[in-house]
Design a protein around this nucleic acid. Structure first.
Lengths: 232, 232
DNA sequence: CGCGCGATTGACGCCCGTCAACTGGGGTGG
DNA sequence: CCACCCCAGTTGACGGGCGTCAATCGCGCG
């Protein structure tokens, strides 16, 4: 199955392939396998030996870390162009997260050996991969800081801000319905769906957001931003 | 100033240089500058533009992240062989942490341009760097999980366990005095020195640890491990 | 249309952060 | 060599944020 023009455009603007010549890109993409998955399916599983790296072409993927006591910590919601499984292929250790499709998604993937070969042939690919992982370090560090220093309300506000661009497709601002349950947001903030519900109920009364079952619409983004920055 | 035999041995077993030929190592080390710093001096500062990467040859370095409200989160205590500043050189963003010497330390360092040249000539160096950053991702992820799911006492136990090997030089087990104040441990656990003091007072009464001013000695490591694992 | 599951709301309590006061060990200067 | 003083550590009191549990509601998919 060949990629469509819009899919190729997505790949072309993906961080992983920046600075590579068209020829290099073509060669790298040629060795990839295409995979389409339905919503809810698991793409790779925490604890498994790393075998594949993917770049998301279309759809959406949730990265979650399972805790020993049955809870889960949501790490990131990925959109088109994002890399999935990047931390694992660079070293022989089990995947630290589980990746689940939240909608019908198309990915292109490489086996560990294939991506290895690409690294050898195109050093820039490895550079890009390293940079992407550095971005993840920054993100985790920020999350750690927020968890230690900020109350739940502020973290929820930050989370909504952070997730918004992922789901904004061609939508206009103020009209994007985030497909997130209270539980999803709790996992993103390191909290519980009870506390999240209380926070969001208060916001809805103030007109900052609007919410239906499993859906959140941000109505007053500036106000949300000020809460995220700590203005009470 | 040339490196001593023991210093060369430390560098040789550093993760960053694994898989490189003696010739490659010599070439990489030749382009490095040696730097010696007294205790308490700042090696690189959070927010500065990244200019240097270092490998710690001897001594000890603390990596801390400063929060907007004046607090600090301790990320890691580095020992000989560890890389300092690795996340920053791979991309043009300010250092996310401040590195401070906790004792007289010797480091070898490269400028961004120099390390760049080494990457080009020795791809394995970049591979190793990427792997080291992946290890940091794992560490941050684990810290995040602990912060969300575990009470302070458990996190303090984990912290002592984690920091012990850094300070164990040629010491025998059960005799290593960790040079950490209550405040230091609080910053490592995302807590306060009050709570840490309470936890450690209880432990001292049970003979698990012994403590003096700015010093902690683990007397009953197995017991500490069981607390770290959540056995109350 | 009915049922299942996500959301809401209240009650309760505990962990731990905050503030204040006190103690004592050890380094420094006289 | 002693005395002073600074700062890390200790301990108690207090309160609030938020996790936990239980009960109920009601949207929306099948």
């Amino acid at each position: 199955m060949p990629l469509s023009a819009t899919e190729l455009e997505v790949l072309g603007s993906a961080d992983l392939f920046q600075g590579l010549s068209p020829a290099a890109r073509a060669s790298i993409w040629a060795s990839a396998a295409l995979r389409q998955v339905p919503p809810g399916s698991v793409i790779l599983n925490q604890g498994d030996e790393p075998s594949q790296v993917y770049v998301l072409v279309s759809g959406g993927v949730k990265l979650g870390h399972l805790t020993p006591n049955g809870g889960t910590i949501a790490l990131e919601y990925c959109g088109p162009g994002d890399v999935v499984g990047c931390v694992a292929v660079l070293r022989p250790m089990p995947y630290p997260v589980t990746a689940t499709a939240i909608e019908t998604s198309v990915l292109i993937g490489w086996s560990a050996a294939q991506i290895e070969a690409c690294f050898e042939e195109h050093p820039m690919l490895l550079r890009n991969m390293a940079r992407i992982i550095c971005a993840r370090v920054d993100d985790l560090l920020q999350r750690l800081r927020e968890l230690v220093t900020e109350p739940v309300e502020q973290r929820v506000a930050r989370t909504l801000q952070r997730v918004l661009p992922v789901f904004e497709g061609a939508r206009r601002a103020g009209e994007t319905a985030l497909p997130l349950s209270r539980q999803d947001i709790a996992e993103l903030t390191g909290s519980t769906h009870f506390t999240v519900s209380r926070v969001m109920s208060a916001w809805e009364q103030q007109g900052i957001i609007e919410s239906r079952r499993q859906r959140v619409i941000v109505r007053n983004a500036p106000r949300l931003a000020s809460i995220a920055e700590g203005a009470c």
